[in-house]
C-alpha cells in the first residue's frame, strides 16, 4: 500500500507533505466553523471558500502523484489477458499511453486558458485570483503528460498489479 517514506523521491515527499497540509487545514477550517457556530453563534465566512480551494489542489496534486505509481482506478482484466502475448501487449500499452498523453494535452490546454481568464477575477470572500482554481489541473496535466512521454520513450512495461483503495 504505502511505501515507507525514505524510499520516495524527494519531489514525491514534498507533494505528500503538501497534500497532508491541505487536508489538515481543510479539516481544521470546517471544524472551527462548527465549533464557532454551535458554541459562539459566529463563524468564519472564509472557511468554505478556503477549504474548497485546498480540496481542488489536494486532489490534482494527488492525482499527479498517483499516476507514476499506477494507483489510478482502471479496469485491467481484459488487458491482463494479453500479458502472455508480448507483441500485442506492447501495442496496447503504447495505445493507452498515447491516449493518456492526448487527455493531458486537452486538459492542460483548457486549464491554461482558464488560468489566464481567471487571473482577472477574484473570489467572493477571500478575494484570491480565480485562476488559482484551474492552476492545479494545469500542473497535474503537465506532470502526467510528461510522465506518459517518458514511459513511452523508456518502453516501461505497463503495471497491472496496483489498485488504489477506494469505496
Amino acid at each position: 500500500m504505502n511505501a515507507p517514506d525514505n524510499t520516495l523521491h524527494p519531489m514525491q515527499r514534498i507533494v505528500h507533505t503538501l497534500m497532508a497540509t491541505c487536508l489538515a487545514v481543510m479539516a481544521t477550517a470546517v471544524f472551527l466553523n462548527v465549533v464557532l457556530r454551535y458554541g459562539f453563534g459566529s463563524s468564519v465566512p472564509a472557511s468554505e471558500e478556503l477549504s474548497r480551494l485546498l480540496f481542488v489542489w489536494m486532489v490534482f496534486l494527488g492525482a499527479a502523484a498517483a499516476y507514476p505509481a499506477g494507483e489510478h482506478m482502471a479496469f485491467t482484466s481484459l488487458i491482463g489477458l494479453l500479458r502472455h502475448r508480448p507483441a500485442l501487449f506492447a501495442v496496447a500499452t503504447l495505445v493507452i499511453r498515447l491516449l493518456v498523453l492526448l487527455a493531458s494535452v486537452l486538459l492542460g490546454r483548457g486549464a491554461w486558458q482558464q488560468v489566464v481568464v481567471g487571473m482577472d477575477s477574484t473570489s467572493v470572500v477571500l478575494g484570491y485570483p480565480v485562476g488559482l482554481l484551474p492552476l492545479p489541473a494545469l500542473l497535474c496535466a503537465v506532470a502526467i503528460g510528461a510522465t506518459a512521454l517518458w514511459e513511452i520513450a523508456q518502453r516501461k512495461p505497463l503495471d497491472l498489479g496496483h489498485s488504489a483503495e477506494v469505496e
Partner: peptide
Amino acid sequence: AKTTAVVMFL
C-alpha cells in the same frame, strides 16, 4: 489524502 485524490480525480 492519496485515497481521496484517486476517488475524486475520478
